[in-house]
Write a protein that binds this DNA or RNA. Structure first.
Lengths: 225, 225
DNA sequence: GTACTCTAGATTGTATACAATCTTCCTCGT
DNA sequence: ACGAGGAAGATTGTATACAATCTAGAGTAC
């Protein structure tokens, strides 16, 4: 939270808690009550209530009637579902882009450059790589020009970040991701719709498979408190 | 709001306002302030605040900093975007169903029966038809077994209801909708993936086109106060 | 030992009061 | 006539108090 300022306490609390949840600083199913957070943040219940409500609708917390909120523990099935929604949206995105052809190609050229560099040695840290990967997919969505779709994709990616960060801990992932991303860009430029879709599907499916394993690691780690 | 009970005032206010907005009982861009709603509903600011916030994140209201909230007026582009997201999600749904084949076919058989009946004369009122159409698409999504996707689709459809109700005012739409829906079901049953996708695309595209015209009607009507 | 009841605490839902900020419009000076 | 400045009102953000409901655990009867 260094540097960033928020207009109200509620937004600040949302950002702080989201950050903590994404970095696994709470055990799964950890309970959060209004009173407790009021104390810790030194504010009244009003902003805390708003923050909890927001986090629940965003899928980071779940509400337990009369028992407060708890950090939502996604199970394998739910994560698969999120990946499926992502797949549905992103297949549509690459189809749009491949159809359209040359419009807005400057963004896409920039992506090509970034990921070519990444392939040629310039290694990055895990978290940075996860960030660039997210940026890749969101840039494509942005180029497709549908703000509503972009917003939904961002919401999903934010939730999946919890697991993707673990995924990118594996070094070998970096190289294959580069190849996959460049393949997607190539197919789009060539207006090869079905090829672009298949390339995107491969990319997302590999992520999904790796996350499968990563989740087990993560859960093991999380429960080892 | 007859019959339905809500656990808290906030939920009740959300439902009431949503209903009113969907039925065009507010002029576009109509402003809603906390104080005003407190008076009208006879409650305090706390539940009203929560309700307004919820409606804003659901896309029914937009927040204007320091100037309260206003009924969101969607422009053509934004509606197109919502239709695109719907298309992306629903193409994925029919692809899943067509791949899977026979599982969960009881739901789909029920749909086939409903829409065959509708084709053979049993005419319905506009609002009922819009409801059945929504149900058709949501049943397919449910059959695909992805709760997250279903939730997103519902959120989108709820917003589009504002325009779809006008669309279904046209009588000729009913018959062609029946044919399209039955075609989709047939292709799914035949495991014809690309055929099912195309049929779904035709169905959604026709809706989109009609809504284009409907919006102009709606806006003309709404602004004629 | 088990099941039932009742109470104390926990927790949220709602109302209200106060503070801070922004908007708007009026006034005053040029 | 026109723009700057300021004051009153509108509006939200935050804190706090009270009410209602649910949970959980202790104690008791059998």
């Amino acid at each position: 939270m260094v540097g960033r300022q928020f207009s109200n306490l509620s937004a600040s609390i949302v950002a702080t808690l989201k950050e903590r949840i994404i970095h696994w600083q709470y055990p799964p199913e950890h309970r959060l009550t209004e009173a407790e957070l009021c104390q810790k943040f030194g504010v009244s219940r009003s902003p805390v209530r708003e923050a909890l409500r927001t986090l629940a609708t965003d899928g980071f917390l779940k509400k337990m009637p009369n028992r407060g909120y708890a950090v939502k523990q996604y199970n394998l099935r739910e994560i698969e579902e999120l990946y499926e929604v992502r797949l549905a949206l992103e297949l549509f995105v690459v189809e749009c882009l491949a159809k359209r052809g040359t419009a807005k190609m400057d963004d896409i050229d920039a992506l090509k450059q970034t990921w070519t560099c990444l392939l040629n040695g310039s290694s990055k840290k895990d978290e940075e790589l996860a960030r660039l990967d997210t940026l890749f997919h969101e840039t494509l969505a942005q180029a497709a020009g549908n703000k509503s779709l972009l917003r939904q994709l961002r919401a999903i990616n934010e939730r999946l970040l919890l697991f993707r960060m673990i995924d990118f801990g594996k070094a070998h992932r970096a190289e294959s991701t580069c190849h996959q991303h460049l393949e997607i860009l190539k197919r789009i430029a060539a207006k090869d719709i079905s090829g672009a879709r298949k390339a995107m599907q491969r990319n997302i499916d590999e992520g999904r498979k790796n996350v499968h394993a990563a989740i087990k690691d993560a859960l093991a780690r999380a429960y080892s408190f």
